[in-house]
Amino acid sequence: MANAYQPARKRRRLGHDWPWMAAFVLPALLIVVVVQLYPLLFSVYLAGQDWTLTSSQTSEGFVGLENFVKVLQNDVFRRAVRNSVIITGSAVLIEMFLGTTLAYLAAGTSWSMRIVRTILIMPLVIAPVAAGTLWRMMLNSQMGLTNYLLSFAGIQGPDWLGNAGWAPVAVIIVDVWIATPFVFLVISAGLTGIPYELHESAALDGATRWQSFLRIDLPLLAPLLLLTLMFRMLESLLSLDSIYTLTLGGPGYATFTMTYYIYTLGLRSFQLGRAAAASWLFMAFAASALAFVFWLQRRWQTAQ
């Protein structure tokens, strides 16, 4: 009873000037509708149209699901799906591992650790287009710094950007370089929220560092780790900029990801209908990746 009563009272207390508050919300709502909702609905319409902008200024008619079928039958699209899974899957796992490890290694309030943290988060503010450009020079097989340094260790470095097997590895390296700092930063913030006393009493009980990590830190960090995993998965799937400047999707179609494929289809060859259909397939893919993370979270909670 009391619970049912309270929100109503609060509503009367601060909610009686709701016309003002609604007016405050209106401009934001308007922009969201015009720039996000309308294009989204427009995209549903486009996905059913036969429309290539280079051959016609208007749509050439409704074609049902043909665009979807054509995209699904397309070899480049299938390759792009595979590339996206491989690149995002490995990059995000590496980022989660490295970021979390570094968060532990660089924890502390001393000035030296503060400087270390400042340096480690630098790639976060660097434009991905610039990061791609930078690594295109680094990974150049002849003139780049990476293979030059490897040669000191007696290793003949591969043709990172010219070899179809190595180019996805190069994309993964750049994704890791750009995004590990994000995981590092968020997990570092999460670590400061773990009460020190918990570790202290665990140590008194004779627990090793590793045991107290498994029993204390991991359960406390789990929701944050999953959220970070989700953020990173989506961002990595959507990333276009660094691939654009690093490999331009090449060599051949070796680093075409789903985002890159849709981008070239829609904004280079202007096959609007196809591209819209492909982007909805991508949306379904991203949604299922998200559902997987939520499923993990559920399982984790019931396992507790």
């Binding site: 996000q36 961002e235 981008y263 591209a275 991508f282």
Partner: peptide
């Protein structure tokens, strides 16, 4: 909106 594939709205946005 922050996290769905932005490429989906970019093509219609271009047309708008």
């Amino acid at each position: 909106i922050r996290f769905y594939p932005r490429i989906t709205t970019v093509i219609p946005y271009f047309l708008v």
